[in-house]
Design a protein around this nucleic acid. Sequence first.
DNA 1: CCCACTAGTGCGCAGTGCGCAGTACCGTCC
DNA 2: GGACGGTACTGCGCACTGCGCACTAGTGGG
Lengths: 111, 111
Amino acid sequence: MDTTQLLKGVLDLAVLAVLDDEDGYGYDVVRRLRAAGLDDVADASVYGTLRRLFAAGHLTSYVVPSVEGPHRKYYGLNASGRAELDAAAKTWSGFADTMAALLAARKEVAA
Amino acid sequence: MDTTQLLKGVLDLAVLAVLDDEDGYGYDVVRRLRAAGLDDVADASVYGTLRRLFAAGHLTSYVVPSVEGPHRKYYGLNASGRAELDAAAKTWSGFADTMAALLAARKEVAA
DNA sequence: CCCACTAGTGCGCAGTGCGCAGTACCGTCC
DNA sequence: GGACGGTACTGCGCACTGCGCACTAGTGGG
């Protein structure tokens, strides 16, 4: 099974969740997601997601110069973002529950 | 949040799970998935998934004529399919757990 | 000087679910 | 007996989104 396909639609949620914890910039969000267990997220995906969420009006953005490299573009949740996070989390939970029920109903091959 | 995106990569798993329960044909699998809570799966997606899984060697197939409509193309899991189901279920569980942890870590806005 | 790490952007591709149209078989209703 | 609706499957092209890869650019080290 391809884990990158599982990310479809969920990466938004993951990024929102990470940013709700604390503002962050792309490179850092990638690290946090990896640390959280999403080992194989590609950086391009995260940057793209951030831009998409920003364009959708869910994020605020501000640039902070760095002493150890190029500037960092920080992103943070605004009200719309928090609402979106809430809604997405709810949708996800419902979906996950449905899948869990579907899997529980199958013959117990690997008990 | 778009539920159709959540299905990406998971539809295989859902179809495998449904077929593990009992052999079925496309039209029927759609109904079973809908009944299981996956309300908005499109039939074309299920047919496509079945063909893909069959092409991948995970399914057996046999045609059964029907007295109340066109023939039905039944699909069933073979050993490879069951192995795939097992692996996919495991992958999914791990992924779902990771997401759950990520969501649990966020500030409790909607306790 | 070249390389590695940090940080971001852009382009085009790939997988997969969906919409929609079409085919075909059956029973019913007018 | 022809139109219609439910059953059942196929095919085509589109949309979304994650990924690979190349590129820019700043910093510090061998």
